[in-house]
Design a protein around this nucleic acid. Structure first.
Lengths: 206, 206
DNA sequence: CATTAAGTGGAGCGAAACTTCAACTTGGAG
DNA sequence: CTCCAAGTTGAAGTTTCGCTCCACTTAATG
C-alpha cells in the first residue's frame, strides 16, 4: 500500500540519466559493464543508482522493458501494412537492426535465470500481435499452413544471432541471413511442427 | 628454441585430467566455471592447472582446439558421403547436436577478443573441407549457384543459436530450425550474395 | 523563509575470481 | 640407490564488482 508519491524533479532527471547511460554503455560493451561505470557516465554517484534500482537486475529489467515497448509498437504498426508479407519483412528488419546496434540486448536474453524470466514476459506481450501478423500472411496465401508464430520467434532468434555478431556496420550479412530464413519459411514441405509457446519458453531456460 | 622435452608421466596424466574436467564442467555450466572448480574436479591443485596453462584463456584455447579437430574430421567424413546433400545434412546435424550438448562452446565464440581469434583460426581449418561439401552439392544441382560456403557458416551460426538455447532435450526445436534454414538455402532467388571469408571473420569480431 | 522528507555521493566492505609463490614431493636418468 | 629437475600444492596476494551506509545537500510544502 505504498502511496507512491511522484519522484522529486532531480530524482526523475537522474533516473532518466541512469537509464540512458546504461543503455548506451550496455549496447556498446555488453551487460558486463559495472554499475560504477554506469554511474560515472550518468554523472551521479553509485549510491544514487542503487537508490533508484535496488540491484543491477532491476536496472536491466527496466531497460529491457522499455525495449519490449518499442517492439510491440513496431509489431502493431506492421500488422497494419497493406501487404501482410511486407509487414512481416519490415517488422523483422527493424527489430533486427535494433539488435545489431545493441550488443547488450541479446546478452540479456541469454543470461541464465533472468533471461528466461524476461523472455517469458516479453513473449506474453509480443505473441498476440505477432500471431496476427502470421495469421494474416497465411490467410493471404503467403505462408504455408504449417508455419506458426513459433517459427517467427525462431527466425528472429536465428537471424538475431547473426545480427548481434555482425553489428550495425555489417547489415548486408544479417540481411542475407534473413533472406535465407524467410525463403525457408515460405518453402513447402518443412520437417517438424512449429514450436508452441511452452517450447519457445524452454528455449530460454537452460 | 625450447627443447620441449616430453612431459613427465604424472604431468601428462594431470594435463588430460584437467582438460577432461574442464570440458565437462564448461559443457554443463558454461565458461564461467572457476579454475578452482576445474582443479577440484580434476583432483589436482590450482597451482597445477596454472603450471600447465598460464591462464584461463590458454585452457579455453586448448579445449576449443580439440573441438575444431573433431569438426574437421566430421566434415571430411561428410564429404565422402554418396549423396552430397545428405552429407551436408549429416554434418550440420552432428555439429549442432554437439553444440546443443555443450553450453560452453558457443559461449567461447561469443566472448569478445578471444572468440574472434578462435573463430578466425577455426575458419581457416574448417573452410577448405566445407567448401568441398558445398561445391559438390552445387555441382550435383542440389544447391542454387549463388549459395557459397559462407552461407553454410551462416546456417551453422543461426541454428547453433537455437541449439544452444534448446539444449540436448529439445532437439525437435533446433531440428525444425535447421529444416527452415536448409529449405531456405535450396530456394532460388535469395537476396544478396554469400558472405566471403573476411565478412565472416568480421562476424565474430565486434 | 523554515522545516523536513527525500535525495545524493563515494569511501569501504565482503565475496568471488584470477594468479603467484615458496615449501614440499616425485619421476626417472645415471 | 642417489639426486635433482620437474612437478605439485594450497594458502595468500591482487583485482574486480556488487552493494551498503551515513554524513551531507536539496526540492518542495506551508
Amino acid at each position: 500500500m505504498t502511496a507512491d508519491r511522484p519522484l522529486r524533479r532531480d530524482a526523475q532527471r537522474n533516473r532518466r540519466r541512469i537509464l540512458d547511460a546504461a543503455r548506451e554503455l550496455m549496447a556498446e560493451r555488453g551487460v558486463g559493464v559495472s554499475l560504477e561505470q554506469v554511474a560515472e557516465a550518468a554523472e551521479v554517484g553509485v549510491g544514487t543508482v542503487y537508490r533508484r534500482f535496488p540491484d543491477k537486475e532491476s536496472l536491466v529489467r527496466a531497460l529491457f522493458s522499455e525495449h519490449v515497448d518499442a517492439v510491440v509498437t513496431l509489431a502493431s504498426q506492421a500488422s497494419e501494412s497493406c501487404d501482410p508479407w511486407q509487414g512481416i519483412q519490415d517488422f523483422l528488419g527493424t527489430v533486427l537492426a535494433m539488435q545489431a546496434a545493441d550488443r547488450g540486448l541479446s546478452q540479456i536474453l541469454r543470461g541464465g535465470e533472468l533471461g528466461a524470466a524476461l523472455a517469458h514476459e516479453a513473449r506474453i506481450r509480443i505473441t498476440p500481435v505477432v500471431d496476427q501478423l502470421v495469421t494474416r500472411a497465411r490467410n493471404a496465401g503467403q505462408l504455408p499452413a504449417d508455419v506458426g508464430p513459433g517459427d517467427l520467434v525462431l527466425a528472429e532468434l536465428m537471424v538475431g544471432a547473426v545480427a548481434e555478431r555482425a553489428g550495425p556496420d555489417n547489415s548486408a550479412t544479417w540481411r542475407r541471413a534473413l533472406s535465407i530464413v524467410l525463403a525457408g519459411l515460405r518453402a513447402d514441405g518443412l520437417v517438424g511442427t512449429t514450436p508452441d509457446g511452452s517450447t519457445i519458453d524452454r528455449l530460454q531456460g537452460r
